[in-house]
Amino acid sequence: MVAKSRHTTFRFWLRLYKTAFKQAIALKASFVLRILFMIANNLIMLVGWFAVFNTFKTINGWDFSDFMFMTGLVVTSFSIWSIFFRGAGIYMARLIEYGELDNYLLAPKNILLHTLCSRIDPAGLGDFLSGIILLTASGLVGFNNFGVLLFCIMVGATLFISLNIFLGSLNFYTADNTDLGERLFYSFLNLTSYPGCIYSGAVKLILLSLLPTGLISILPVEQMHKTDTLSLLWMLLVTLIVLGGSILFFYNGLKRYASGNKIGGKL
């Protein structure tokens, strides 16, 4: 029975993606342009940092390859959220704000999963491609630590998804939080755009626990140089807590949801 239910959910998931992807590539030129813009977007950022590393050579023990790996990991993790779960975050916040969650509530499917998967961003493919290029070009990835890399990408992607579920759900609790959520998300992203090596002491501790951007920007680079099982377990534990917390936050908020009266169809 459970297996059948999982199979149905998986099929439903696949169909959602298929429909959302068809919608996204309906305008082919625009689709390709968006991917190219995302790649250029990541490269511009890297050029600036390359110039800085060219001047300083190393920043607190990190060289440009470490920074390239960190950026590659952030971008790849971000792209997984962006491609597959873009429904979390600002889109979810708007659905709640305008009372448009009704369409999802009426469907006989898992509402959170349905909302998360109902929107994809094809430009995320540009992020994914540039992320893979950066990870490869960093020279830190080999056969011996490939498994660690995959683990770090999964941790990063789960953190991005969880954070967006949390920020999107803020509108359940008080009104007009869409902009607030978006700003907080950018604060999170901002912390991952500087080399993780600049953080130390209490700040580092906070970034590895309460505000876990360090799980994307600090620990992975350290793990690629020297794998430490305890650190990997810590990453897993914090990620699961953050994911569980955000899911609970969503369902608890859902109880407060006030339905809208707008009629319309949604994917």
Binding site: A29, S30, R34, F37, M38, N41, I44, M45, D121, A123
Partner: peptide, 20 residues
């Protein structure tokens, strides 16, 4: 008008502001 979704171009311009 041409891109449909302007977000990637917005991010590109934003990075230009940051770096350049």
């Amino acid at each position: 008008l041409y891109l449909q979704d302007s977000l990637p171009l917005f991010w590109l311009v934003q990075k230009g502001e940051y770096i350049l």
